[in-house]
Design a protein around this nucleic acid. Structure first.
Lengths: 64, 64
DNA sequence: CCTGAAAGTCAAGCAAACTTTACATTTTAT
DNA sequence: ATAAAATGTAAAGTTTGCTTGACTTTCAGG
């Protein structure tokens, strides 16, 4: 699974800590997702889509 | 999180076991998601969207 | 150069997702 | 009515997502 967090975050000039706060998760979680260590849960994916005002599909790319 | 699995499955006349096979998960997992016991992982949500030819947002409704 | 903010990473622990096995209940068809 | 198929549910175990705390590395500004 690829994602566009880093770009979307950069566009908004948010730090990982900023995003973490908006999502109500830890900074390490944002970092782990961004660096591809693991995928977010579905609820967290929805939250991420929400703060970036995008669909999940626009942010995350599933590689079957 | 609400979802439309039961309806989508009924429309296609698939059993939970049928769907589980298509998704490559256990029948109990399909049942648990359908009955709201827990949410699927993001990868599984993508697979579900794929087999139903819908977006994740069309199938799952996040309740903030 | 040097400082401070941001990003990366590791470990231990808890919670959520998913597995298998097994059994009970409900629905469907004959 | 009965049998088979589908659905629901439960326990115990594994894997994945997420936490806190701590430490290192990278990068931009004075």
């Amino acid at each position: 699974m690829k994602n566009k967090l880093k770009v979307l975050r950069a566009e908004r000039d948010w730090s990982q800590a900023d995003l973490a706060e908006k999502l109500d998760v830890s900074r390490q979680t944002v970092n782990a997702i961004e660096t591809g260590k693991y995928d977010p849960s579905l609820p967290l994916a929805f939250k991420i889509a929400e703060v970036f005002e995008k669909t999940i599909e626009e942010i995350f790319v599933y590689e079957g």
